[in-house]
Simulated assay, not measured.
Amino acid sequence: MTFAARLHHHRGALRFAPFVVIGLAMLAERLPLAQRHPVLALALLLWLAADSLLLACVATTESRRPGAGQIVARLAGACAIVTLAAPPPLQAVLRATPVVLAAMGLVVLAHLALAASRAVRGWHDSQGVARWERVAGQFLPLPLVRFARLELTVLHMALLRWGGPADVPPGARAFAYHRHLTPMAATLLALSAIEVAVYHVFLGHWSRWAAVAMFVLSDLGLVYLVGLVKSFRFRPILLDSDGLRVRAGFLIDVAVPIDRIERVTMAVDGAEIRDPATLNAALLAWPNVVVHLNAPLPHGPAWRRRMCLRVAFRLDDPEPLVRLLRWRLNQP
């Protein structure tokens, strides 16, 4: 494996490495030696935060030459982390050193100015939810923005969407898979509600604060579960001019280009489904459609990405999709 391939393989871990370094530095800043020399400890923490963020930026950039905006953004992130998360003695030293505080403020202001200029351009180049995500991604880390968007989407679907059509873009055809999941999902919701009530009653006799904490966590879990169950209907599997988009609520969303599809079949082989090279998108049921690929398709986050040679899923009525795919592939 070449150096570039190894770097691409470990790129996900490199994105998390700065937070590990900064977390260890935060723990070291609480040692007695750091408390006796707070000025030196503050300088060391600021250097470690900036250095780790910049090195991760260089390692994860395709050209290994980050732009000025990326460098300023990492420096501003280091300043924000040190200002908000440093131990109280170091924050006192920071407040007592206006020159350092002013320099850190200028770095943050430079980042905001550059991000605002890029956000104005991004506002005109995109539309809808992608516009807001692109604009927010200029000021905050993009993974954090995507996580917040997903959280808001789940909460919106769980609490506010109770009817209406599914999310089907223009030019795409939808294929439902939620009908076979409805009885099992309703049973799971009922059991979860009973479990929450039992936990609340028993913990209430032992500790009031534990009961309140469990009540908040369990209610939040129920809201997420409701959003997940409703997403099965609102996010069907799609077929459009570009290819097949296999979805399973919020859990799975993978696009399969039409030129990657070798053949599609309803003959399901158990050994193929259990093969690690098969992405099984059928939830709580056995798949009834298997799409075979002519080239590996990457799936999953960067830290546990795997290559798939088959995509299996279950539809309520699989024959229309199979006929359309075979017609698109010119297969009998």
Rank of each mutant, 00 (worst) to 15 (best):
residue 145 V to A: 04
residue 163 G to H: 10
residue 167 D to L: 09
residue 200 H to W: 11
residue 189 L to W: 02
residue 177 Y to C: 02
residue 162 W to S: 09
residue 176 A to P: 02
residue 196 V to S: 04
residue 158 A to V: 02
residue 173 R to N: 11
residue 141 P to R: 04
residue 155 L to C: 08
residue 173 R to D: 15
residue 159 L to W: 04
residue 185 A to Y: 03
residue 171 G to C: 02
residue 184 M to W: 09
residue 150 L to C: 01
residue 176 A to R: 09
residue 168 V to C: 04
residue 142 L to V: 15
residue 171 G to E: 07
residue 203 L to D: 11
residue 193 A to P: 01
residue 182 T to W: 11
residue 143 P to G: 08
residue 174 A to G: 06
residue 189 L to R: 06
residue 171 G to M: 00
residue 188 L to E: 15
residue 141 P to C: 05
residue 154 V to P: 00
residue 151 E to L: 04
residue 190 A to R: 05
residue 181 L to T: 03
residue 195 E to T: 12
residue 174 A to Y: 05
residue 172 A to K: 04
residue 182 T to P: 01
residue 174 A to S: 11
residue 178 H to V: 00
residue 145 V to D: 03
residue 200 H to M: 05
residue 197 A to Y: 02
residue 168 V to Q: 10
residue 197 A to C: 02
residue 192 S to L: 12
residue 172 A to R: 07
residue 156 H to Q: 12
residue 201 V to F: 01
residue 186 A to Q: 14
residue 199 Y to F: 08
residue 156 H to K: 07
residue 169 P to S: 10
residue 202 F to A: 12
residue 170 P to L: 07
residue 190 A to M: 01
residue 152 L to P: 02
residue 201 V to D: 12
residue 196 V to Q: 10
residue 186 A to I: 14
residue 159 L to N: 07
residue 180 H to E: 11
residue 179 R to M: 03
residue 149 R to I: 07
residue 197 A to P: 00
residue 150 L to S: 09
residue 173 R to E: 15
residue 146 R to D: 07
residue 203 L to Y: 04
residue 142 L to Q: 15
residue 151 E to Y: 03
residue 151 E to A: 14
residue 143 P to V: 04
residue 203 L to R: 11
residue 185 A to Q: 07
residue 175 F to N: 07
residue 149 R to K: 08
residue 162 W to V: 06
residue 198 V to Y: 01
residue 178 H to D: 14
residue 184 M to S: 13
residue 160 L to F: 08
residue 149 R to L: 06
residue 160 L to K: 00
residue 181 L to C: 01
residue 170 P to V: 13
residue 160 L to M: 06
residue 164 G to Y: 02
residue 195 E to F: 01
residue 146 R to G: 03
residue 192 S to H: 13
residue 157 M to G: 08
residue 200 H to L: 10
residue 196 V to E: 10
residue 178 H to L: 00
residue 193 A to F: 01
residue 141 P to F: 05
residue 197 A to E: 06
residue 158 A to P: 02
residue 152 L to R: 10
residue 167 D to S: 11
residue 145 V to I: 04
residue 144 L to R: 12
residue 165 P to W: 03
residue 141 P to N: 07
residue 152 L to T: 10
residue 194 I to T: 13
residue 176 A to N: 09
residue 199 Y to G: 12
residue 143 P to F: 03
residue 143 P to H: 08
residue 183 P to D: 13
residue 203 L to C: 00
residue 200 H to E: 14
residue 156 H to G: 14
residue 144 L to T: 15
residue 201 V to W: 05
residue 153 T to E: 15
residue 162 W to K: 08
residue 189 L to Q: 14
residue 185 A to I: 09
residue 188 L to S: 14
residue 196 V to K: 06
residue 150 L to A: 08
residue 180 H to A: 06
residue 199 Y to L: 11
residue 157 M to T: 15
residue 165 P to N: 11
residue 149 R to W: 12
residue 194 I to L: 11
residue 172 A to S: 13
residue 167 D to R: 11
residue 181 L to D: 00
residue 182 T to R: 14
residue 177 Y to V: 00
residue 187 T to Y: 06
residue 178 H to F: 00
residue 142 L to S: 13
residue 203 L to A: 05
residue 195 E to Q: 12
residue 179 R to C: 02
residue 202 F to V: 15
residue 147 F to G: 13
residue 163 G to A: 09
residue 162 W to F: 15
residue 178 H to W: 03
residue 187 T to G: 13
residue 154 V to Y: 01
residue 187 T to V: 08
residue 157 M to R: 10
residue 191 L to C: 04
residue 144 L to E: 15
residue 199 Y to S: 10
residue 171 G to P: 03
residue 183 P to I: 05
